[in-house]
């Protein structure tokens, strides 16, 4: 999409947004609450109309939301949008049927989707009896029966146990291997760092920055922290440590000394060898800048402020 503007009343929800999604990649979409992520997804899929700009879907810019194009789209919604009174299998049959699948092909795809998310044994159970993670998996399965080429996942792992989340992330990676392009919205940095090939950051309706995860982290010269557990902190050569190139701050607390340096200064060796000369090293831990820091630097806001709808 290019130059897309969308208003709700007088409030501009999307402000000259440009976004390109190429085939086969996983794009992570990050942004605090109210950034416009949901609106972006809604305009991208044709749910709401836009005021200015163009949207090209699968290469078609003139009236892009034809039935043919919609068949190649899949949406995993933020809330659980399945029928509670139908069984898992019936839910999948419904959504498959809506996408025009019939007969044996539909049966096959339903089985496939159930197996893919790991709910095959629960095919004939109703979602009211499922755990949170299982419901989310069903939510995802409903979007997969028609094998979409572009799958949009709106915060698919909110509020579920780590096991289910890992399962979902694995499934997402498998989907990419099978050739699906994925747009993944989330509050969780770890997920994006794990699966996204490219990240775009949104705030207040604008696209702030985009790039691969590494590019983004490099673009903000932030800190690296090294925590070293030592045998005796009183023997530490603090001034010498501070004078090592790149070191910004040295902090001693208990048996742990934390050295904060600029990212990329590559001084871990020097710091360690200096410390080793004076006292025994019991353990080390490094903290690298992560996407949360990138986010904070670029937008001045926390990514996670109580969760909730984007």
């Amino acid at each position: 999409m290019q130059g897309v503007v969308k208003r709700y009343g007088n409030a501009v929800a999307l402000d000259y947004v440009d976004l390109a999604i190429y085939e086969g990649e996983i794009v992570g979409l990050l942004g605090p609450n109210g950034a416009g992520k949901t609106t972006l997804i809604q305009t991208m899929t044709g749910m709401v109309p836009i005021e200015r700009g163009t949207i090209k879907l699968f290469g078609q810019s003139n009236n892009p939301f034809t039935h043919a194009n919609k068949e190649k789209l899949g949406l995993v919604t933020q809330e659980i949008t399945v029928y509670d009174e139908l069984t898992a299998k019936e839910n999948l049959q419904f959504f498959a049927g809506v996408y025009g699948l019939k007969g044996s092909e539909r049966k096959e795809r339903v089985q496939e989707a159930l197996a893919f998310v790991g709910l095959a044994e629960y095919a004939d159970k109703v979602p009211t009896k499922f755990s949170g993670g299982m419901k989310r998996r069903l939510n995802i399965a409903c979007a997969l029966t028609h094998r979409p080429k572009l799958l949009i996942m709106d915060e698919p792992t909110v509020g579920i146990d780590p096991q289910s989340r890992n399962h979902i992330l694995e499934s997402v990676k498998k989907l990419q291997e099978q050739g699906t392009t994925i747009l993944y919205t989330t509050h969780y940095m770890e997920e994006v760092q794990e699966i996204a090939s490219r990240v775009v950051i949104m705030d207040q309706g604008q696209m702030i920055k985009g790039g691969t995860v590494d590019q983004l982290i490099q673009s903000i010269q932030h800190e690296e922290r090294i925590h070293i557990d030592v045998a005796d902190t009183s023997l530490l050569p603090v001034e010498q440590l501070q004078s090592i190139a790149g070191v910004m701050h040295v902090d001693v607390a208990g048996t742990r000394v934390t050295v904060i340096s600029t990212a990329g200064s590559g001084n871990v060796d020097r710091i360690l060898s200096l410390v080793k000369e004076y006292t025994g090293v019991l353990g080390i831990q490094t903290e690298n800048p992560d996407l949360e820091d990138v986010f904070l630097t670029l937008t001045g806001k926390q990514l996670r402020d109580g969760g909730g709808e984007a």
Binding site: S243, M248, G264, S265
Partner: peptide, 11 residues
């Protein structure tokens, strides 16, 4: 006012 120059940054 403090001006510090190390091998990789100036502050």
């Amino acid at each position: 006012v403090e001006l510090q120059v190390t091998a990789s940054i100036v502050r």
